[in-house]
Design a protein around this nucleic acid. Structure first.
Lengths: 160, 160
DNA sequence: GATGAGCGTTAGTCGCGCTAACGTTCTGGG
DNA sequence: CCCAGAACGTTAGCGCGACTAACGCTCATC
């Protein structure tokens, strides 16, 4: 019997993860997401920023001032976490937080000139980081990849 | 006039997240990974399992019995977390944990008959869940997607 | 004017990836 | 032969992201 031939380790000696595991889209996805998150987080940290900063600044730039609740739904940040993010942005002078005179429950958040400059810089930083993230893919492939991702995300957010 | 509802919201009414945000591969990736994780976790929970269970059982099936450390590197589970996962598997009778007579530092983990049956079931469950995950893509597209993911993951794991 | 809803805020939960440290056991060099 | 160092299993704990619960305040409605 082949019994002893043994062992479990394939001849090449390396400890391999089984194919059924390695091939699963869900696993590839979460592995890549972890790498990606780290890459982005570290890159932004070097610019004294985090991804939430970018999300908020971009929302403000694109759609103008808004309440914290609005920013939450625009950027996908939980309203519970919004306060902390805004504190950091205010601290850095990138954003202004003022009570809304028309509705005293609200704060109106406005991007500052400095915030706009910072945003431009972050855009550049992110471009570079995405170059790194997608390095092995050709431009056409990157496009295809993003399109596939978009379709999947759209599908899974529509069906809530 | 559209009076009060006006504000800064675009005419279609929906609160939209800016394109520069929505389009970023990193963001799509982490969003999809979150959805995917949830989908998988919930699906497996219905079968009284978690993804780590699958990882361990698959490794055992594929490469035979091994120490906890071996299983760690095969499955990508941290050795700190391995013990908990194995406790759950032992509890369910899917796996046996016995001290290695040749090296008393080690435990030898073996998959049981019941574990093998469970694994087959989980394979089916995961197939279905991936059908759901990749629903909007054609078979060819799913293939392309997995290939792109694989290349990216490979690239980012080789460069450690 | 009371009820209910929206807003901002604080605190806390849960899972995941990861680090630190410890006791036990094996291995290799002096 | 012994001792230093490494590997193993285990426990405890951190940091972070997504999320829930609850509270006080303010607005809108009846």
């Amino acid at each position: 019997m082949t019994g002893a031939e043994t062992a479990d380790v394939p001849e090449d000696g390396a400890l391999r993860t089984p194919d059924r595991l390695r091939r699963r889209a869900s696993r590839l996805l979460s592995q890549l997401a972890v790498r990606s998150d780290r890459l982005i987080a570290e890159g932004l940290a070097r610019a004294d920023a985090r991804k939430w900063h970018y999300a908020v600044l971009a929302s403000l730039q694109e759609y103008g001032p808004g309440s914290q609740a609005e920013l939450s739904s625009r950027s996908g940040i939980y309203r519970s976490d919004m306060v902390g993010v805004l504190n950091e942005l205010v601290e850095r002078g990138l954003v202004e937080r003022a009570p809304d005179p028309d509705d005293r429950r609200r704060n109106v958040i406005t991007i500052s000139a400095r915030g706009r400059r910072h945003l431009r810089r972050l855009d550049k930083v992110l471009d570079d980081l995405h170059d790194e993230l997608l390095a092995p893919l050709s431009p056409a492939e990157r496009d295809r990849f993003v399109r596939l991702l978009t379709r999947l995300v759209d599908h899974h957010t529509r069906n809530s």
